[in-house]
Nucleic acid binder design. Structure first.
Lengths: 256, 256
DNA sequence: AAATGCCGTTGCAAATAGTGAAATGAACAT
DNA sequence: ATGTTCATTTCACTATTTGCAACGGCATTT
C-alpha cells in the first residue's frame, strides 16, 4: 500500500463517522502504527487537508479540501450547471431528486433536493452509491466504457435487500434494458420500499459522467408515474449534458 | 519532502491554472521525475482525487475531492450556516460580501455574493487571501492564537500595492486596532482602489475560525459607511459564530 | 515516406523516506 | 497518590520510493 494511499484512507476515515477522531482510534481502525498515522496526519495538516483541535488533540477534515473542491468546481462546473435542473425536476415531481457524479470509487451524491412530503426518500450528501444496486448505478453503467462495466460485472455484487440484483447475468440484462430505454428503473435494490428512476448525464465523448435520479416511496408510485419520471430524468440529464459540454472551457480534445 | 506532501502539491498544481495538465507539464513544474509524478497521480486517481481524460491522457482534479469536502461540511456546517448571513448582508449593503475560512495555508474564500452594481469588487471562490494585506486577514489575526500571529509577523510581508502594510510594526498596530474595534479596516492593501471591512467569526474557544468581509470600490465608500459596514460585519460574524457553536454536533471538549 | 521530437509508460538498481517497537511525558480516572 | 491511557519522540531497520534509461506510440517535419 503506497504512502499516499494510506494518507487518503485516513481522510476517508475522518469523513465517515464521527466529526473528530483521536490518533489512537485512527491508527487502530486503519491498522497503521500510531507513529506512522501521526506523521501522515502531520503531512496532511501541513497542507490544510486535516485540522487538529488544539484542546482535545483530535483530528478532523480540514478547510483545504473545500478549497480544492471549489477549484475543481471552477474548472468543471458540474454542480453549478446541474443544480437548477435538479431543483426544477424536484418541484415538478414533488419527489426527492438527487444528482451524482462518477468517481473511481463509485457514484458520489453531490446534490439532493428532498421531497416536501412527510413520507419521503432521504439521500445523504456525499454518499457513495453502489453501481449494481441503484437506478443511478445502472444508468451510469449503461453509458460508460466497457472496461468499467466489465469490472463491476466481474466484481462482487453484495445484496443490500432481498431485492438487490446480485447475479451478473441479471445485472447485464438490466443495463441493456436501461441503454435501450435511455433511463434505468431501480426497485428496492438498495433500500426496501424505494422505487427510483435515473438517467445518465453524458459528457463530450458521449460517455456518462454522472446521473440524475428521482427516488420515491414505492407506495406513492402510481401507474404511469415511472414513465413520466423516466422522461423527466432523461430530459433533465440531456439538458445538463448539453450545458456542460457547451460551457466547457477546456481546450478541444485530440480525438473528439 | 514527504511523499504525501508531493502528492498534495500535485493537487494544488492541478487546482491553480489550467483545468487539465499533461504529465510532462506537471512533472516539470513540480520538479519531480516523470515516473514519480505518474505514480503519485496513479495513487491519487485510485481514490478519485484526480481524474484522467481518456482521450488526451491529461489530468484534472477528481470528484472525490468534492465528496470529502461535502463530508466535512456535513460534520462542520460552516458554509451552510454562514451563507444566509452573507447574503443578507450583501442585500442590505449592496456591496460585495465574502466569507472566508482559516486553513494552514491562509484564509480561503468559501462564499461570495457580488454587488449588483457595475463597478464592483470581484473575489474568486477558493482564493487564498494573504493575512497581512487584507481586512479579513487582519481581523483574523486579531482574534487568533499568538503562535499564528507571531508566525505571520515574523514572516515576509510582500507588498501587493504601494499601500500594502509591509512592516511588522505597522501590521501589529493594525491588528491591535482591529482587536480593540472588533472589526478591521483594509485600504487598498491587496488591490488598488478597494476598501474593505471585516470581522472575525469566533469558534467555541473564542478564537477566529474565519471572517466575513465587505469589499467596495473606494470611490463609493462615503462618510460614515465604514462605521456602518463595520457594525454590519461584526453583527453578522457574531450571529454566525453563535449558530455555529450552538449547532455544533461535536462532543464537548476536555478543556472548554 | 522516413525521420524527428515529444510524450506516456515500464523495468531495475540505488537510496531515501517511511516504518514500528519502545521509551517519555502529560493528562485523566480511580 | 497510583495506574491507565494517550500523544509524542527517538532510532535502527527495511521497504517503498526514486530517477535513469530504454521502449513504443503519436504527431509533426523534412
Amino acid at each position: 500500500m503506497s504512502t499516499v494511499a494510506k494518507a487518503i484512507s485516513l481522510l476517508e476515515m475522518l469523513g465517515r463517522g464521527e466529526p473528530e477522531l483521536a490518533l489512537a482510534d485512527l491508527a487502530r481502525h486503519a491498522g497503521f502504527d500510531k507513529a506512522t498515522t501521526r506523521r501522515l496526519l502531520l503531512s496532511l495538516m501541513e497542507h490544510g487537508l486535516v485540522e487538529q483541535d488544539e484542546g482535545t488533540r483530535r483530528y478532523r477534515l480540514g478547510a483545504g479540501l473545500g478549497r480544492l473542491a471549489l477549484m475543481r468546481e471552477a474548472q468543471f462546473p458540474f454542480l453549478r450547471t446541474a443544480a437548477p435542473l435538479v431543483e426544477a425536476l424536484a418541484t415538478e415531481t414533488g419527489e426527492t431528486v438527487h444528482l451524482s457524479e462518477y468517481s473511481r470509487r463509485g457514484l458520489i451524491t453531490v446534490h439532493v433536493v428532498e421531497s416536501t412530503k412527510a413520507n419521503r426518500v432521504s439521500v445523504a450528501l456525499g454518499e457513495l452509491l453502489p453501481m449494481h444496486a441503484t437506478a443511478s448505478g445502472i444508468a451510469f453503467l449503461a453509458f460508460t466504457e466497457d472496461r468499467i462495466r466489465d469490472t463491476i460485472l466481474a466484481g462482487p455484487l453484495p445484496a443490500f435487500t432481498p431485492f438487490t440484483v446480485s447475479s451478473a447475468a441479471a445485472l447485464a440484462e438490466q443495463i441493456a434494458a436501461a441503454r435501450a430505454r435511455g433511463h434505468s428503473i431501480g426497485s428496492q435494490g438498495f433500500e426496501e420500499g424505494v422505487q427510483s428512476v435515473a438517467a445518465p448525464i453524458l459528457g463530450a465523448d458521449g460517455l456518462a459522467i454522472g446521473t440524475i435520479a428521482i427516488a420515491a416511496p414505492q407506495v406513492r408510485v402510481l401507474e404511469g408515474d415511472i414513465e413520466r419520471y423516466g422522461a423527466g430524468v432523461a430530459d433533465a440529464a440531456h439538458s445538463i449534458g448539453e450545458r456542460l459540454v457547451g460551457r466547457r472551457s477546456l481546450p478541444e480534445r485530440r480525438r473528439a
